[in-house]
């Protein structure tokens, strides 16, 4: 009985947290007092004051305003690309437990191959071929993390597929799709969600690395990781400009992971 009561509440919590970040991503920039490229002070790395609540960055721009824009791009791009990579990875990983062996071989080798290609090379090639559109960015990030998700989910699915209850279900003559959907997926949920959460974190970090290379959000806009990177010199002055974006990243990613953990804990 208890399980039934807490299940919706966990789902609600996921919904609420994502809802909060999504709303912030959508409407946050409306709250920004300054334009993201506007230099408002000759003092760089200014501390918190009543003039600029969150201080200034390395060029003397308003950090609060830039932070609001950064949240928008990080949340949207990382959510999309994580959904893409985990969707593809899990689909392939689980599906190949039920397909002929050669399909698994082809998919597996392809994934290993993609994983072994340095993401730097991928990113540079994508910029050269498709330019720097946000769509290209999301797809690149998605492709780069698909093999990881594939490996994890396949290892999990493989273990479950050998379990007795699957054998029993097979013996019962259940269809493959039914088994995957009703037996395998629900039972690998815990580790899978932990993996999804981690992949979201990786996406946030990858985004800032890609921006550093030239693929990514174009100036004067910025993502959270790049905000940390461009202000890293402020470290020696203990600047808000480097500390605060780091905290926001941590709160965003740790929060999402904790909620995913909580959901994973409730078994259906």
């Amino acid at each position: 009985m208890k399980v039934r009561v807490s299940l919706p509440s966990a789902t609600q919590r996921v919904g609420m947290l994502f809802g909060f970040w999504l709303v912030l991503a959508m409407f946050g920039p409306l709250l920004a007092p300054y334009a993201p490229g506007q230099i408002i002070d000759t003092q760089v790395f200014a501390p918190i004051s009543h003039q600029h609540w969150l201080g200034t960055d390395y060029l003397g721009r308003d950090l609060g305003s830039r932070l609001l824009y950064a949240v928008r791009y990080t949340v949207l791009i990382c959510t999309l690309s994580t959904a893409f990579s985990c969707g593809c990875g899990i689909l392939l990983g689980v599906a190949t437990t039920a397909t002929p062996a050669w399909v698994e071989q082809v998919a597996g080798r392809l994934m290993d191959g993609i994983l072994s290609i340095p993401s730097l090379l991928c990113a540079l090639l994508v910029i050269a071929a498709f330019g720097d559109s946000l769509m290209a960015l999301v797809l690149t990030m998605g492709v780069i993390y698909t093999p990881g998700a594939y490996r994890t989910s396949r290892a999990l699915a493989l273990r479950i597929a050998r379990m007795d209850y699957i054998t029993v279900a097979m013996a019962r003559g259940e269809g493959r799709l039914f088994i995957i959907w009703r037996e395998i997926l629900p039972n690998m949920r815990g580790p899978l969600l932990a993996d999804v959460g981690l992949r979201f974190i990786y996406a946030v970090l990858l985004l800032s690395n890609l921006s550093f290379l030239g693929l990514g959000v174009q100036p004067p806009l910025v993502d959270l990781g790049s905000l940390v990177r461009e202000n890293v010199l402020g470290l020696v002055y203990g600047a808000v400009a480097v500390v605060l974006p780091t905290i926001v990243i941590a709160v965003l990613t740790v929060g999402i992971n904790l909620v995913l953990d909580a959901t994973a804990g409730r078994r259906s």
Binding site: A35, G37, Q38, I39, L59, L124, I127, D132, L213, G214, L215, Q218, P219, P220
Partner: peptide, 21 residues
């Protein structure tokens, strides 16, 4: 480029920036 872009914005000009690798 960001400084220039903001000045352009102030006179009603949309000046896109492309940061290349």
């Amino acid at each position: 480029a960001v400084v220039l872009q903001y000045a352009a914005q102030q006179i009603g000009m949309d000046l896109p920036i492309r940061r290349m690798p």
